[in-house]
């Protein structure tokens, strides 16, 4: 009996909850660590990036307006789905990054655990980052964190799955929506993650995944006026500088790459906080009655 011929997967972009091919019709070859062909990935274009921003903006109101509890539930659901696909992700990570099966499995496990860790933050971050301010006057004064808006994320080039989760989850758990540019050389885990997101109650447009050239996609995203922040984790120093200059056009919040970041270390809340705005609301309190002081 001849060996069964495997069914190969066509990897697609993920924009607004659907899986289109690149509007450019282009693909590029994704190879394993030794240069062997793994798959063709869509080579997304500026127009795909633009469509992704439109989808992310459209999703922002609903996602940021959802209760923190619901966002936590949705993120936890993602972790459940990931758990069910451990094997697939382990194989993709191993093939794409040349890790041993055991090391790849460990990275996938760490990524799922990190996703769960961030899911739990949804309804705690406001308590840690916000609070009442004891102003010197008859006013109730409260500061609360709010999501920045649409965030463009250049996923780390290395650590294609744990690194990816470590930049994506903190952005969306607080209510931001994301246009994610997958690791150029190892995009498959990101494209597969999109399939998980599509089946885990994450509203369409909250996460949009593009694969292709970081420089080609980063430029229009950094300059896009309807993008509020950009995470440059996946940019090298020169690209990061160029994109930061472009991002200044509408004063985007910029997360610079931190070379040497250990994705396995405890991340702390910093990445969430960096993509939050602080809103401070004042209201008079005064006294219950009209006692009113004299002159």
């Amino acid at each position: 009996m001849s060996e069964r011929l495997a069914v190969l997967k066509t990897y697609k972009l993920f924009i607004g909850g659907t899986f289109p091919r690149s509007e450019s019709g282009r693909v590029y070859q994704v190879t394993d660590a030794k240069g062997g062909w793994l798959a063709n990935a869509p080579l997304a274009s500026r127009k795909d990036a633009r469509d992704a921003v439109v989808a992310a903006r459209k999703a922002f109101g609903g996602w940021s307006g959802a209760t923190a509890y619901l966002r936590g539930q949705v993120l936890y659901r993602v972790a459940e789905m990931l758990e069910g696909r451990r094997g697939q992700f382990t194989a993709e990570v191993a093939a794409g990054s040349g890790l041993s099966k055991a090391k790849a499995a460990a990275e996938v496990d760490a990524a799922i655990d990190r996703w769960v860790w961030y899911a739990g933050w949804s309804d705690k971050v406001a308590q840690v980052a916000g609070g009442a301010n004891p102003v010197a006057g008859p006013y109730f004064n409260l500061s609360t964190p709010e999501p920045t808006g649409v965030v463009a994320v250049l996923a780390p080039r290395e650590s294609a799955f744990l690194g990816l989760v470590s930049v994506l989850a903190p952005a969306i758990v607080t209510g931001n929506t994301v246009v994610l540019v997958a690791s150029e050389s190892a995009p498959l885990p990101a494209l597969s993650l999109a399939e998980v997101l599509a089946t885990s109650d994450v509203p369409g447009g909250v996460v949009n995944v593009l694969s292709g050239r970081a420089a080609e996609l980063g430029a229009p995203l950094a300059a896009h006026r309807d993008v509020n922040a950009i995470d440059l984790s996946g940019a090298d120093a020169e690209l990061a500088r160029e994109l930061e200059v472009a991002a200044a056009d509408n004063l985007k919040r910029v997360l610079r790459p931190r070379p040497g970041t250990s994705w396995t270390a405890d991340p702390g809340p910093e990445r969430m906080l960096a993509l939050l705005e602080t809103k401070t609301v004042w209201h008079p309190t005064g006294s219950l009655g009209a006692s009113g002081s004299a002159y």
Binding site: V135, S143, W282
Partner: peptide, 11 residues
């Protein structure tokens, strides 16, 4: 119900 209030404790 107020405007232009500032305080060192208030971000």
């Amino acid at each position: 119900n107020t405007f232009n209030k500032f305080d060192p404790t208030s971000p």
